[in-house]
Design a protein around this nucleic acid. Structure first.
Length: 280
DNA sequence: CCCCAGGGTAGGG
DNA sequence: CCCTACCATGGG
């Protein structure tokens, strides 16, 4: 992995086929990244603000040291995993081939567990622009202020002390009590997020589903995006369409250990590609 | 008015 | 086990 620094910025040499920041950060797996002018992206991750820009052969990490890159961003973007071989394997399947060719540089991020869990609780029966908007308002109201206009995701400690009335105006709808139940179970230690990740996946599923509002789909999303369990396979309304259209005999078992990665390529393709079939 | 969005719960068959 | 009404909110 070739990296170099120039003034305060770090330059990572990488092809767009190996990491495409817009496809990766705007594909519905995370909710706190925004496109800026000048083709930049800015996001809030682990109580930090990061701005990126991609060129043909590199990604620029603004105001980033080599140490910070090695300690944080290399893992967040999962740069030690060989996606080329994963994609090669998945592309034996035709729908996956089309989906991967549509967004080659899409990677599954290794996100913060609590933030991912809360975010996908908020995501239920909701759409991505509204999810982003609600999370942003939640952060502005209850997250630590990181700069003049940027706020971190709230801690379980802060959220666990709130009541439903404290969440009015955030457009959470009926999900407000689900979020509070999640924060209370995490803060009290009834659910230990550090341990959930090392449980056998079925036990992790069961543990997460003790939270009100966490059913099969939200649990799979939390495991995939917040605990990096790439065998987790969330089935939302879009993936239901994919399954009924392409995989009437079920999703291929040969991909089961990496089904979550396949799922994300399919999700992004069916939702945003002009070439994807309109199913409905 | 309808339907839909990264669904889940409670209740009844 | 299955099926269904309902949940709060905003956009199309």
């Amino acid at each position: 992995m070739k990296i170099a620094t120039n003034e305060n910025n770090l330059h990572l040499s990488i092809s767009q086929d190996d990491l495409h920041i817009v496809n990766t950060l705007d594909c519905g797996q995370c909710f706190r990244w925004r496109k800026q002018e000048d083709n930049k992206m800015t996001g809030v991750v682990f109580d930090r603000v990061l701005t990126l820009k991609q060129t043909d052969d590199e990604v620029i990490f603004y105001n980033t040291t080599i140490k910070e890159f090695n300690d944080i961003w290399k893992a967040y973007f999962d740069l030690d995993t060989d996606y080329q071989s994963i994609k090669k394997r998945l592309m034996c399947d035709q729908p996956l081939k089309a989906s991967i060719e549509y967004a080659k540089g899409l990677r599954i991020l290794k996100q913060d567990s609590f933030e991912a869990l809360c975010s996908f609780i908020i995501s239920q029966n909701n759409n991505i622009p509204r999810i982003k908007s609600t999370i942003e308002k939640l952060c502005e109201r209850y997250g630590n202020q990181l700069s003049e206009t940027v706020y971190a995701f709230p801690t379980a400690s802060v959220l666990s002390q709130l009541e439903k009335k404290d969440l009015q105006g955030l457009s959470l709808g009926y999900r407000d009590e689900y979020l509070l139940d999640c924060a209370k179970k995490v803060q009290s230690g009834q659910i230990k997020l550090e341990q959930v990740g090392s449980l056998p996946i079925d036990e992790a599923r069961a543990e997460l589903r003790t939270i009100k509002g966490v059913g099969p789909k939200v649990a799979e999303c939390a495991l995939l995006f917040g605990f990096y369990k790439v065998e987790a396979f969330p089935i939302d309304t879009w993936i239901k369409k994919v399954l009924s259209y392409y995989y009437t005999d079920g999703f291929p078992k040969e991909f089961s250990e990496i089904a979550g990665i396949a799922q994300q390529y399919l999700f992004h393709y069916i939702r945003t590609s002009p070439q994807a079939p309109k199913i409905g």
